[in-house]
Simulated scan of single mutants.
Amino acid sequence: MAARNRRRSTARKRRQERLKAGVIGGIGGLVLLTVFWQVIWPYLVGGLAIVGGAAGGWWLWRTSRLAKGHDHQWRREEAVKVGHRSLTEVDTMSGGEFEDFVVELCRRDGCTEVRRVGGSHDDGADVLGCLPDGRSMVIQCKRYSPKNRIPSREIRDLLGARVHFKVDVAIFVTTTYFTGPSERTAVQNGVVAVHRDHLGLWNNGVSLLSLSDVNGAGQGDRRHRARWKKTYG
C-alpha cells in the first residue's frame, strides 16, 4: 500500500513538473516573440502567404482540371448525339455522303487534319488524317448494299494506298461485311477492318482506336448469318 502511494506521488510530481516546464516554455516563447517581433514578423507573414498561395493555386488547378474533364465528356456526348445516324439512314447515303459521315466520326474522336481525298484519281484513299495518338492514317470508305461483300482485291488496293501515302495505319470502313479471305488479308497486314457491326458501334460512341482491339472479330455466328441471308437474300 505504501509503495503504491509512493508511485502515485512520484507520478503526480512528474506531471506537475512537466506542466510547469510547459508553462515556462510558453511564457519564454511569448517573451521572445514579443522581443523579436519586429525582426521575425516579415518572415512569418511571408511564410503564411506562400503556404496560402500554394494552397489556393492547387485548389484552382484541381477545379480547372475537373471542369475541363466534365466539359470534354459533355462535348463528346453531345457530338455523339448530333452525329448519330441509324444504319438504315447510312444505307441511303451516296458514296460522298458516306465519306463525309466517316470524316465526322473521325473528328468526333479527336482525329486531326482529317480531309476527304476521294475521287476518280484517289489512289485507293478516301480520307486522310491523323489518329488522336499522332499516327497518320488512310481510310477507304465503301457504302455497299448489305447483300455485297468486300473482296480481297479491295484490301490489297488499300495496302497500296498505305504505301503510296506513306502512312502508319490503314482503315477500311464499310456498311457491309468482308469475305473470309479479305478479312484474313486485312488482319494479317495490319488493316483495321471496320465492318457493319463495328460501324454501328463506332456510330454509337465507341472510339475508332478501340475498334482496332477487336479487329477481325464480330461478323456474326452461323445463326446471325442465316438471319442476314434471309433478310437480304
Rank of each mutant, 00 (worst) to 15 (best):
W74C: 03
K166R: 15
V39A: 11
A226Q: 14
R156E: 14
T176N: 08
G25W: 02
A2N: 08
V23R: 15
D109R: 06
L199Y: 07
W41H: 13
R76A: 01
A49I: 08
F165A: 05
T88V: 10
C111Y: 06
L158G: 01
E99K: 02
V90R: 04
A2P: 02
R76V: 06
W37P: 00
M137F: 15
I155K: 08
V191R: 01
S207E: 09
T63P: 00
T92V: 07
V31K: 01
E113H: 13
W74N: 03
I50M: 13
R156G: 00
G216H: 06
D109I: 10
K230D: 06
G22W: 06
I24Q: 12
R225M: 10
S86R: 01
R65L: 12
V23Q: 15
H121F: 15
D213S: 11
R85I: 00
M1E: 09
K147M: 06
P146M: 01
P132C: 11
R225A: 13
T112D: 01
R184T: 14
F36Q: 01
H72E: 07
G25F: 10
A54I: 13
V90I: 15
C141P: 11
V51Q: 06
Y232E: 00
L32V: 12
L199M: 11
G52D: 01
W41S: 09
S64R: 14
F178G: 09
G129P: 14
S136M: 05
Q219T: 03
T10V: 09
R18Q: 12
P151Y: 15
R156T: 10
Y177E: 03
A3R: 05
Y177N: 11
R184D: 12
G134Y: 07
V163Y: 03
F178V: 12
R14P: 01
G110K: 02
L105I: 10
G160W: 12
V187D: 00
D122E: 07
V102N: 03
D197Q: 09
E17P: 01
T112P: 08
G47E: 05
R153I: 13
G118D: 05
G119M: 08
G83C: 10
G26T: 07
R107I: 09
I27E: 07
D122H: 02
H70K: 14
P132Y: 13
G190D: 03
W61M: 04
M93H: 08
E104T: 09
Q38E: 11
R14Y: 07
A186K: 05
V39M: 08
T88L: 14
A161G: 08
V82E: 00
A170G: 13
